[in-house]
Design a protein around this nucleic acid. Structure first.
Length: 355
DNA sequence: AAACCGGGGAT
DNA sequence: ATCCCAGGTTT
């Protein structure tokens, strides 16, 4: 029996019953695939239901304000996915008359859709024979064939893509693609895979050579950098000062408290000596630290955040910045990043008008 | 080719 | 502390 047939048989017995698998609707499949990029199924699941409920069609998605979409996305990370989804939905509305495309060639032209997602949508919706190559596929193939080529090198990616396409079951591409990903997620896991009960136990090169734990091989990336953020909580007449982040850095377009960044850790009593601080604030503000340093770890940077309550709001140069006062109820509606809304959740008194 | 872009869970 | 998750875009 072929590699593909064994995999599909395994899938029919052990595969997961996931909500986006009970449809051929390319819009619903697209929704699930974008959400699941670099995201665990369990983490993405509630967001999938949330988006489908708010936007049952791509037309509804296209008509929504970006603010609403970002707010629904709040906490999921990689926020460019949400911004790209909105652009993609508008393109479907304009260039495809509101009918979500299903061909690989059409779908890959949409922002936020790369080779993996285009193959997933085309194969799941209309069985176009395009092999998906995601983290699961790299792992299964590198182990089964004993391929030591790095999965994040240009050469390695090309090799694995060609091999995946060759192995694809051309008569059942949709089910095959789901099968190999589920197999990687459930059986051929990154750590402690279930080799003893594996259907490929006798064929797997890595298992025969006792090299399962070493594969796949991945080149190490750059180390994370440390950044030091100082957030200022400014309340004035039932409103709070908020700032929208610019593009070109983390958390683009998301709201947070006004802040400055310093190159190093700075003591509270020296903060007002920083040039950045003096650029935005008058000297002599009364700063009351709230809590201690919050470490927020991202994939490529460690953020050390401090929060200060500013007692006298009058002297702040808000007109020179993109800072605005928002009613406390309105702040709840703003799309914020995790560091900010988890702070607000921990300090509900800050948003309580009765405070 | 390498850097950038989040947040969370498993080990 | 490290890895990795149904990756994609920009430089």
């Amino acid at each position: 029996m072929s590699f593909a047939s064994k995999l599909i048989d395994w899938y029919s017995e052990y595969g997961r019953d996931l909500p986006w698998r009970n449809t051929h609707n390319p819009y619903i499949i697209w929704l699930s695939e974008i959400i699941l990029q670099q995201t665990r199924v369990e983490q993405g699941m509630p967001y999938f239901y949330r988006f489908l409920e708010h936007y049952p069609t791509v037309t509804k998605f296209a008509e929504a304000p970006e603010e609403d979409i970002l707010r629904l996305w709040q906490g999921l990370g990689y926020y460019s996915r949400a911004r790209n989804m909105h652009k993609a939905a508008k393109r479907v509305q304009d260039d495809f008359a509101g009918y979500f495309p299903t061909s690989y060639a059409d779908v890959i032209t949409l922002p936020g859709v790369g080779e993996y997602t285009a193959a997933a949508i085309a194969s799941f919706s209309v069985n176009e024979p395009k092999a998906v190559v995601d983290g699961n596929v790299y792992r299964v193939l590198s182990r089964y064939f004993g391929i030591a080529e790095a999965i994040n090198s240009t050469n390695g990616k090309k090799q694995f893509a060609a091999l995946a396409q060759e192995l694809l079951d051309k008569d059942r591409p949709g089910i095959y693609n789901q099968a190999i990903m589920d197999f990687g997620a459930i059986q051929c896991k990154p750590k402690n895979p279930y080799c003893e009960t594996c259907i490929f136990r006798l064929d797997c090169v890595a298992y025969a050579l006792d090299r399962v734990a070493e594969l796949p091989i991945k080149l190490k990336g750059k180390k994370s950098k440390n950044r030091y953020f100082h957030y200022f909580i400014v309340r004035e007449q039932g409103k709070m000062l908020m700032a929208k982040r610019e593009e070109g850095d983390v958390w683009a377009n998301l709201y947070e408290f006004p802040s400055i960044e310093t190159a190093q850790e700075v003591a509270v009593d020296q903060l007002q000596d920083q040039p950045e601080f003096q650029h935005y604030f008058e000297n002599g503000l009364m700063l009351t630290p709230v809590g201690s340093v919050v470490k927020h770890v991202l994939s490529h940077q460690n953020i050390h955040a401090r929060f200060y309550v500013v007692e006298s709001a009058a002297d702040i140069k808000t007109t020179k910045n993109n800072w605005d006062y928002f009613l406390l109820e309105k702040i709840d509606k703003l799309a914020k990043h995790k560091l900010i809304f988890s702070f607000l959740e921990r300090n509900e008194y800050l948003t309580n008008p009765d405070f």
